[in-house]
């Protein structure tokens, strides 16, 4: 896929999301001149510990998108088993495609070129609602989620409050 094609595909998705916004997030470019770097604001999903939060994330696409997955980083502080302490999101659909020798992830759980910003964000929002504590990126958060749920809830609530204060900066 050439540079022009990946840019064209991303422009098409941006236009589509502007025309038909999707519940749960709003997407735009960090810099209008760079189609490869998006800022996506995730609205904490209702009926989860993250409800009421506004989480700013950066989605960075490689030049050979959609053959390779983008990277997603939370810029707003967040406490979650599958998001490491620097904000990097670790979910299987953002892992490189291919033959997983060890069989941890089935091919359909990994990156596919049919994924779009919308399908990625839908997965991330469902990850917020339903952490996978079997492959944690933040081990402390995963342990807390499993063993000291009240403490976990308190930390998340603190992040939600903070996110409300900083969302419009």
């Amino acid at each position: 896929m050439s540079l022009e094609q990946s840019a064209l595909l991303l422009r098409r998705q941006l236009a589509e999301l502007n025309r038909h916004p999707v519940d749960g997030f709003s997407a735009g470019l960090i810099d209008d001149d760079d189609i490869y770097r998006w800022e996506v604001l995730i609205i904490g999903p209702p009926d989860t510990y993250y409800e009421g939060g506004f989480f700013k994330t950066h989605l960075t696409f490689p030049r050979d998108y959609p053959l390779k997955p983008p990277k997603l980083k939370f810029m707003t502080e967040i406490w979650h088993p599958n998001i490491d302490k620097t904000g990097d999101v670790c979910i299987s659909i953002l892992h490189d495609p291919g033959e997983d020798k060890f069989g941890y992830e089935r091919p359909e759980e990994r990156w596919l070129p049919v994924h779009t910003v919308e399908t990625i964000m839908v997965s991330v929002i469902s990850m917020l609602a339903d952490p996978n504590d079997e492959s944690p990126a933040n081990i402390d958060a995963a342990k807390e989620w499993r063993e000291r749920r009240e403490e976990f809830k308190k930390k998340v609530a603190r992040c939600v409050r903070k996110s409300q204060e900083t969302a419009w900066d």
Binding site: P97, P107, P113, V114
Partner: peptide, 11 residues
Amino acid sequence: DWLMRSFTCPS
């Protein structure tokens, strides 16, 4: 291009 990376149907 995709099949060189992963030999599965993306759909």
